[in-house]
Structure formats: C-alpha cells, structure tokens
C-alpha cells in the first residue's frame, strides 16, 4: 500500500506542471445497482458531482427553504425513517399545520417516472417547488427563497463551489436537491443480498416470497416493488381524496393512487396515502377481508386477496427482508 502512495506522489511530481491537483473531496458519481433498470431521471442533464451532491445535502437539511426557518426537507423525510416522516399519518409543516397525505419515503427516486400519490409532478427536478410553496409545508415563494439565498454569503459560497457562478438560480437549487435525492438508493436489504447470491431466504421467507410473487407482485413489481401505475386497492367506497383524478379530471381516475414501493415497508408505517393503517397486519387484513367496492377498484382485487393466518405470517417474514439498514445508517447521506 505504502508503495502505491509513493508511486502516486512521484506521478504527481512528474505530471504536467500546469495541472494543479487539489484533491478536496473524493469523486462521486451516480450509483446504478446491477439488478435495477436504467434510471428514468435524465442524468446527462445534471451529472452527479461531489460538489453538487454536497450542496444538495446541505439544502435538504436546511430550514432556509421554509418561511420561518423551522422546517427542512429532512423534518418530514428523516434518514432514521428511510426518508419518510417519523411514523405519523400526516406531516406537520410551518406553524404546525398538517397536510392530508402520508409522506412517502424518498429513495430510489431516480427510477420513478412521476411523484406524489397522484403523480402530479412529472420530473424530480420540479419536485422541490411543491413542499417549498405549500402553505402547510414550507410556505415560501420561490422568489423569496432565491432572494434569501442570494443575500447570504454562506449560501453564495456553497453554490459557487458547486456551480461556479455568483448568481444563485432556482434551477441550481432544484438540481442540487435532485442530486442528493438521486444518491438515496435502497438496494442493501437482505432480499437484495439473496438476489445477488450473497445470502439465502429461510423457509418462511421463501414461502412468503412465493406468495408475494403470486398475489402482490403484479402491482408491487420487483425490483423496485412498484410498477408506478395508478390503482384503486379498495380502501373506500367513496374516496375523500380523489387521487389521480385531481390531475387528469378523468372519472376513471377517481380514487386511484400511485402504487407505493414496499422496500423498507415495515420501517415506514403508517400505510396508504392517508396513513390510515398503523400496522402491516391491518394492511394484510385489508387485502384479505376489507377490500371495498369502488367503480375504479382494480379488477384483480374484485374478490380481495384472501389470506390464511399462515400466509399472512409468511408474507410478513418476506416483507421484513426488504428492510435496508445500510441505507438507514449511510454516513454520506446523514445531516452534514
């Protein structure tokens, strides 16, 4: 090892004298798990760099994006909770106001084609404007946020280090936040290790996996555990929240919501778009005996998904294998 270091030093000394190397931070690039599909996010328009990622990380944890400097993205998307909220049904924003939907975990965003439970946001870069300007979240205006950042020597320095310009723009803000989110990748669960041949399932887990493939995977599709479609899974006869309809105005979209990922699902309770179920048992009971009729109920759920007590147990054993404790403790993503 020492030999290599000396060799490197020699290389530096003999290299072009005009190239001054100042290795500040280790290089960083997008991480693509081998068994995931190609990302949906157009990486070429915002290539991941260490500097931009670190800026995004600072911003994600900073309350500067909120009206009264009290709320950051991490307030509702905490690493300890796999970047979901702290096991609450709905989140509290500026002034303690609450919204109506459960905060989803923010990981594997690079593969997601649309965002929010109703899919209203079409691009990861355009996501941040939603919480920033939502009166019950950060309650700011984009103009004010950009003016605040431009008035701060601290932020000007941070943005300059990342983008090399003196004027901070909303595009830079959005792209930096995007880079941080792009690097939140969950692929370190026991399930992933089994898939890569580095571990194996117990008999119960395997039984659960088989059941899962039969009964759940049509919507919660591997390897991301969602197919990103909008479906009604029979929560209500009349939905209080119109879901996808709010975006498309199509009757056939009433009460449909984006199929959520099930990675880390046992760690990110409560469940469903409004956080109505606090335990996974309630969710399984819902599929087994609680599916309600609705004009837009998914055809595959017309008779629910009847499950015996054993089947529920096996499914739970399998879902547990989706917990990613590596992501939960990844230093690189923690509060800077």
């Amino acid at each position: 090892m020492r030999f290599i270091i000396i060799l490197c030093l020699l290389q530096v000394l003999t290299a072009c004298k005009k190239t001054l190397i100042t290795p500040v931070l280790p290089l960083l690039s997008f991480y693509q798990p081998v068994d995931f599909p190609e990302p949906v996010y157009p990486l070429a328009q915002n290539p991941v760099t260490r500097e931009k990622f670190e800026l995004g990380r600072l911003l994600f944890y900073s309350p500067v994006l909120s009206l009264d400097n009290t709320i950051s993205c991490a307030t509702c998307h905490a690493q300890t909770h796999l970047f979901a909220d702290h096991n609450v049904a709905v989140s509290s924003g500026v002034g303690g106001l609450t919204g109506t939907r459960n905060a989803p975990p923010v990981f594997n965003m690079a593969w997601q084609p649309h965002f929010m439970w109703d899919g209203g946001v079409n691009h990861l870069e355009m996501f941040s404007i939603a919480p920033i300007t939502n009166p019950v979240e950060m309650n700011e205006t984009m103009l004010n946020v950009i003016n605040k950042l431009n008035a701060s020597d601290y932020w000007k320095k941070q943005f300059k280090a990342a983008f090399g310009t003196d004027q901070i723009t909303d595009q830079q803000l959005f792209r930096a936040l995007t880079q941080y989110m792009l690097m939140i990748v969950s692929d370190g669960s026991h399930y992933d290790k089994v898939k890569r041949g580095q571990a194996s399932f117990t008999a119960d887990q395997q039984a659960g996996y088989n059941l899962f493939l039969q009964k759940c995977a049509s919507c919660h599709k591997e390897p991301l555990f969602t197919d990103y479609s909008f479906r009604n899974n029979g929560l209500d006869e009349i939905s209080a929240d119109d879901g996808r309809y709010l975006i498309t105005q199509l009757e056939s979209d009433k009460g449909r919501f984006k199929v959520p990922t099930l990675r880390n699902v046992l760690l990110t309770y409560p469940y469903m778009h409004d956080g109505r179920f606090f335990t996974i048992d309630q969710v399984l009971e819902h599929y087994s005996s609680g599916v309600k009729s609705h004009t837009n109920l998914d055809p595959s759920l017309q008779n629910g998904i009847p499950l015996t007590a054993d089947e529920k147990k096996y499914l739970k054993r399998f879902l547990e294998t989706l917990n990613d404790y590596e992501l939960m403790s990844k230093m690189e993503l923690s509060e800077p």
Partner: peptide
C-alpha cells in the same frame, strides 16, 4: 419545456407562473 425539469431565464419558477402540484 413543461416536462424537462428545471429551466432558467423567463422560464424560472421565481415568476410564479408555475403549478407546483401538477407540473406545468
């Protein structure tokens, strides 16, 4: 430009001419 992410200049979101919850 409505589906390609963050823009600059006249298309910056600071003008308030942008829907946050239903991108466009």
């Amino acid at each position: 430009r409505n589906v390609s992410g963050a823009q600059t200049g006249a298309l910056s979101t600071t003008s308030g001419m942008f829907w946050s919850w239903n991108t466009g």
